[in-house]
Design a binder for these strands. Sequence first.
DNA 1: CGATATGTTGAAAAAAGTCAATGGCAGTGG
DNA 2: CCACTGCCATTGACTTTTTTCAACATATCG
Lengths: 242, 242
Amino acid sequence: MRAITIKAAWNGHSDCQRCGIRESALFAELVEADFALLHDQIDDIDYPPGAALYHAGANGDWLFTLRAGAIKLVRYNADGSQRILRILRRGDICGLEVLVGSAYDHTAITLSPVMLCRIPRTLVERLNRDTPRLQKPLFERWHAALEEADAWLTELAAGHADVKTRVARLLCRLGNDGEPGLVTRLSLEDIGAVLGVAPESASRALGSLRRSNLLADVPGDRHHWRADTRGLAALASPTREN
Amino acid sequence: MRAITIKAAWNGHSDCQRCGIRESALFAELVEADFALLHDQIDDIDYPPGAALYHAGANGDWLFTLRAGAIKLVRYNADGSQRILRILRRGDICGLEVLVGSAYDHTAITLSPVMLCRIPRTLVERLNRDTPRLQKPLFERWHAALEEADAWLTELAAGHADVKTRVARLLCRLGNDGEPGLVTRLSLEDIGAVLGVAPESASRALGSLRRSNLLADVPGDRHHWRADTRGLAALASPTREN
DNA sequence: CGATATGTTGAAAAAAGTCAATGGCAGTGG
DNA sequence: CCACTGCCATTGACTTTTTTCAACATATCG
């Protein structure tokens, strides 16, 4: 591990009322009056790939809403190896746990250039006290996180599916909403840390997918792959009729 | 799979104010006045082993608090195999998700004789609307469920640990609070469904643990094992100094 | 007392891990 | 501009772990 000096770029305060992901954001159901409280408290920040938003166990003063890019939530084992527990995409929230305890449960690291909103914990707590409108979205966020964890346990964890199948499933989950066929690229080490396999095994699985024309590099773009989403999905689901 | 006719025994309404797990229960922080609302709405029910509390996708009208015994939360794959996502113990809640959507996310099946409280969804919703005291415990429950899912992903899912180690970790999690050294017994199929391994592999791991005197059957009790918790923990954690 | 479930064990096959060598590519510094 | 270095990915050969298939044991239940 090397020390990285990351310069996060501050883009000013967020205008939540005109936010591009407003309809899916935490504050979707707030009304005009509520937004007065938000003014100047939420910062709009960019991070380069590989930046740490926060570390597991650290005291948490902020929640984050991801507006573009991808973030991995990581936990480190006693032996120093990492395990990736979730990968967050546009519209996802991270750091929700600071509303319960005050420490972060995971380490959050950017996988690509990231644009996000940084929301003070105290603001969410105050809004939640003052209006009943925030509670439902908060419950829904908890539920979504749990659903995601459950899906990883069923689809991505070992058992009844070989590495190639699970890599295909992972790639399906990494699809970019905007451009179909474009998936965010992970390092072999990261794929290994998601699936619990050796990086070499991940490489062999990717190689096999490439040879089947289900996956290809994007020339000049080291942050994405080009993927045959339908083909991968067919491989990923055991929908064979026999 | 065989059809089972299960007769659940109704023990009358619960007296939440004098509940044995009151301090850790959902309603721990309610005050005297709130309990008036609870009267006669919460049922105290017993289930035999192998009973289904509810099925994934079914409409959910109840939450459950587990007062004794163990419950598995299961999801079925397309090919009919089961995956166990969590195992709930005394004090745990299941069915929280009905507060968000109205359908259950998993199938809940008892692993042993179970005593639980059945709470109507509408009651929790009303209480949560009328008093602010329920929100914090609800958030904490969501958080606890997510923590548990994350722990399973890191400790029990494959990767950097062989079957024997993971079985040892699972057994550590199955310890009974009341009687140290007594752990709730799972079938080989269930262990397989938790760890994502074949039942035969689970059997071999258990055999190895038995031969090391870390595990033994309890004569006359098919619902428990006797385990050397310290020895298992030593096996489970990679805390070797070398 | 069979009949069915569940658990155990052995032997062979398959999957994945490990170790090591190689190649490409980006960034660095002459 | 080019060699050099470090990082990451790929590939092969070999080892280990786990699965699979099968046979057999044990227990429960009508």
